[in-house]
Amino acid sequence: MEGFLPPFWCVFWFAVSLPFVAYGCYRLDRLVREERETLPLLAVAGAFVFVLSSLKLPSVVTGSSSHPTGTGLSAILFGPFLTSVIGLIVLLFQALLLAHGGLSTLGANVFSMGIAGPFVAYGIYRCGKTIRLNTFVTIFVAAAMADLVTYLVTSLQLALAFPAQSGGIVGAFVGFALIFAVTQVPLAIVEGVIIALTFKYIIQSRPDILVRLDVLSQEQVTKIREAFK
């Protein structure tokens, strides 16, 4: 939220996020020069993350409005650096079109939602693929962890800015994390299930997209489609 973090931490998180986004922009420029047709497709993914995160997710805890982050999906499809650029743009649009988040806290939000979460999701997905874990289990774990890591990093950011009297930063971190856990843990599980199911539908109707982006190999797609028949 705008104005929530003290000035030092606003600047700090901008500085931390900058190298990731800058490298992402460099990758983006190179990609656009080499394969022009990828730009509109990246844009589609960005708009998809925006629309998904502005929808209310079916929530287990009644009364809490919970939003999926959707960045796990983008990280699996395009890798973490391009996702950090998409994350920056989506968060900027959320601030300007929906009045969610803020401009001074943009650095902190980009780090938690656009960098930390996607990196973990991408790492898990690649590991799962290497050790040949079931594709849907891997996607579920990757998407759910992206969500959990995003909220743990947010708790850490809050704890660093507002340490507790007893227990200091660690105490405050535990406090914020416990309060968020009530809504975020069920949300992460639901988001994991939804992203995994989303992949199932994409594999059923347009598997060529996933093969082209090197998310799945052709043999994996054939195997999964065989299993559904």
Binding site: L41, T198, Y201, I209
Partner: peptide, 21 residues
């Protein structure tokens, strides 16, 4: 609702992808 939401997400993604192409 979980089923429907996933179906909604996937269909919007596929339709968007076609629009992109």
């Amino acid at each position: 609702s979980v089923q429907s939401f996933a179906m909604l997400g996937a269909m919007v993604f596929i339709r968007a992808w076609q629009q992109g192409e």
